[in-house]
Nucleic acid binder design. Sequence first.
DNA 1: GGTTGACCTGGAGTGCACTCCAGCTCCTAC
DNA 2: GTAGGAGCTGGAGTGCACTCCAGGTCAACC
Lengths: 127, 127
Amino acid sequence: MTYSIAQAAERSGLSIDTLRYYERIGLVDPPARDSGGRRSYSDDDLGWLVFLTRLRTTGMPIRMMREYAQLRHRGAATAGRRKQMLFEHRAAVRARIAELQSCLDVLDYKITHYEQIEHTFVEGITA
Amino acid sequence: MTYSIAQAAERSGLSIDTLRYYERIGLVDPPARDSGGRRSYSDDDLGWLVFLTRLRTTGMPIRMMREYAQLRHRGAATAGRRKQMLFEHRAAVRARIAELQSCLDVLDYKITHYEQIEHTFVEGITA
DNA sequence: GGTTGACCTGGAGTGCACTCCAGCTCCTAC
DNA sequence: GTAGGAGCTGGAGTGCACTCCAGGTCAACC
């Protein structure tokens, strides 16, 4: 199965411009071209794009994704290094989740605080 | 208790430049000045700065923090609107956590996958 | 064969959130 | 009284990750 750039964009959740941008900066390999010179993405290409969007969603900077892409390009010999990168990144994501959780607690507290204010306010009116 | 800009920076976790920047864009009220014209932050100022850093940590854009700051400035009458903002923001933070969690699952899967490759590789060498 | 629409290229522009700088003032310590 | 250090201002510069644009090609449909 092959996909036009518009289809690849739709399925990966990236924009067409972003797809071309990622190619330009070496984050994705240049895909095949059809007879008219247009990009023709394979299922493998799509899989990689989807994985990249996962990394991006978790806040991995582009230069790190590029490093990962370069290692991947060099084949099985770099599997250990890549695994190490994912391992460290996973720890960073877990830390980020913990950080967000603790901020959630602050939000909960603030929202409760506002509810008390409202309560007092209503009482003030009805009393 | 009052604090110099350096102390306020240290306690809020923001840089001195960021503190002045936040003041410039109306995110924090201009603090008092000492006899030499230097900023002198109060405990209240500090509390607000710390709260802002929480909002920033959770990814609230600056224009929204500014909107919140402006409502806050208008007093108790805007408490409902502010609560609503925090309420919606909390939902966004929760969604973000869920998104990160699901990406974590992908990372877990990938890391396990690499472990299997390593395992195979080692077996290949020793066999 | 002309128009339409998707796609192409290289390069410029955007928005966000800072971060840095030059040139200045003020207070303190020697 | 001067040297040093913290802080001041307005404005310019930075890094990131896109996003947009002009001007062109190509295949298909009417």
